[in-house]
């Protein structure tokens, strides 16, 4: 009896030691998964910020004589399409640009009496960044303030 109880004590001790090790392994693996999730979030926010900077400096959207960027040209914005921008910058995002002093969606019919441009389909579940930009109105030579919004689909 005494021998048996010693044996059981021993077996129980070994069992607890192994359980502690298993719990430690699960904990480390779980920490890795959480860390990967936060890295994924960081990568997505970095991509959104990159798209914002890329648009603000793109020669396809900006006025030529402003190499420092962020001077969008309204005729270029009206001419370029979502498909064109997808070919240049990939997929999984949308962009909106709004002239704060003018309204109306811009297209070939409404130009130049318009102030909103939308590129690609907007989705509710997106990570969105926005920055103020300048918009050069080509037909009048005026410079207006605008807000560029870039959303990355989550």
């Amino acid at each position: 009896m005494k021998g048996q109880s010693h044996l059981m004590e021993y077996v129980l001790l070994m069992f607890f030691v192994v359980m502690i090790m298993v719990v430690l392994m699960f904990f480390l693996t779980g920490w890795q998964v959480t860390s990967s999730t936060s890295q994924q979030y960081e990568a997505m926010s970095h991509k959104a910020a990159f798209l914002l900077r890329a648009f603000a400096n793109s020669p396809y959207l900006n006025k030529k004589t402003y190499p420092e960027g962020s001077m969008f040209e309204d005729s270029k914005l009206t001419a370029i399409t979502c498909e064109d921008l997808r070919k240049l910058y990939g997929s999984g995002w949308y962009a909106e640009l709004k002239d704060i002093s003018m309204e109306g969606e811009c297209n070939e019919e409404t130009y130049p009496n318009c102030g909103e441009w939308t590129f690609c389909k907007k989705k509710e579940k997106s990570m969105v960044f926005d920055i103020p930009v300048n918009i050069y109105r080509k037909t009048t030579g005026e410079i207006h303030i605008g807000i560029l919004k870039v959303g990355l689909y989550v």
């Binding site: 005729s75 009206t78 001419a79 370029i80 064109d84």
Partner: peptide, 9 residues
């Protein structure tokens, strides 16, 4: 894009 822009202008 440039063809469309030129047509718009």
């Amino acid at each position: 894009a440039s063809i469309r822009e030129a047509n718009i202008l």
